[in-house]
Amino acid sequence: MKNIAVIGYGVIGKRVADAINLQDDMKLAGVCDIISDWRIQNAVRKKYDIYAATEEAADKMKSEGISIKGNMQELLEKSDLVVDCTPKKIAALNVKIYKEKGIKFIVQGGEKHETTGHSFSAENNYQSALNLESTRVVSCNTTSILRTLTALKRTDLLDYARGTLLRRATDPWESHLGGIMNTMVPEKDIPSHQGPDAKSVDPDLDVITSAIKVPQTLSHMHYWNVKLKKQSTKEEVLNAFKTSSRIKLIQYDQGLVSNNTIKEMFLDMGRPWGDMYEVALWEDMLKIVGDELFYAYVVDNQAIVIPETIDAIRALTGIETDAAKSISKTNESLGIH
């Protein structure tokens, strides 16, 4: 049983904390942040141990009636590993602390690969993360790219891939602060950063991405054009995708015609926050023309990296050396079937 600290209790941090709490081979040591509003108050309601990142934050928490267990240093001292879910500039400072204290750590995809020297995707490179000091769980879009392309590569179908990403403008709860309206904003550089990021996990992937920010907040959507290694049938391609337990094949003709209808389905399934840990890939939209494959899918950027983070904890701490066993255990705990 390993003690795991979560630093940063935001969109990703709160989900990671809940997921850790569902496991039987790790324990949530506590959550640490600077906030004292409704977000951390919900952590109090869940009876999580609360730690303050700064003295100023501690004073504010106490003034709001939040009982704190101590500061960040004290949380790290009682933990075997820390999952850092803080914003980029904060995470970079925290990494120095983790290295000085000699504590294992996981950062999110917003950090650079060089921060850890290892980037993680459970179905792709679990073994190479075993007992490392640190890793980076790649971003939501990169995670989806690796899951789908690795499934095709695993079945010897993938030659190269070219993808277009329609990126949501911001997280739903922050849409009042920014985002875009009545416009679309293309990323200037092609490839966009997701293609090279996927190659940080698998250098052999021949993948190029382009990205466009669109005025909605529910999810990302990807369109892919893949050159197949050989003439293949639709059934062969679908069977390749089925080798990943974290790709969910969906049907456009069953009313799942948009990202909002897909979100509603996961809410109806009883997932917390309506979270979709899987890549939702349209089975009946998929087409093969000659040796080219065309498909599209939806990515929930708040949820897709949560199972990957749990698997990364197991790999770094060595509590499970078999990737398939960890993935199965995580899937069961989160209701991924």
Rank of each mutant, 00 (worst) to 15 (best):
L93I: 14
T321D: 10
D311N: 14
I306V: 07
E64Q: 12
T209L: 12
T86H: 11
D202E: 05
I250V: 09
N3A: 07
M26C: 01
Y9I: 06
K47Y: 04
L293H: 10
F241Q: 02
T135R: 10
D322R: 09
A323P: 10
V44L: 03
E278P: 10
G274T: 09
N42D: 14
T150G: 08
S244H: 03
A151P: 11
L22K: 02
T321Q: 10
D202C: 00
A5P: 12
M269R: 13
S175V: 10
K46E: 02
L281C: 04
N124M: 12
L228R: 04
S139F: 02
Y252K: 00
S245N: 13
N131Q: 04
K213G: 14
L249C: 08
S63V: 04
A324L: 15
K96M: 07
D206Y: 04
I304E: 00
I97E: 11
A92F: 15
L146Y: 05
K188S: 13
M184K: 15
L238V: 00
I250G: 07
R167C: 13
L293C: 08
K199S: 10
E77K: 06
I247M: 05
T135P: 08
E100P: 09
G109P: 08
M184H: 14
L130Q: 00
P87T: 04
L146G: 00
M184R: 15
S232K: 03
S128D: 13
G179C: 11
K199N: 10
T148L: 10
D84C: 15
S328P: 03
L132F: 01
L293N: 05
D159W: 10
I313G: 04
M184G: 13
P307R: 02
N42F: 11
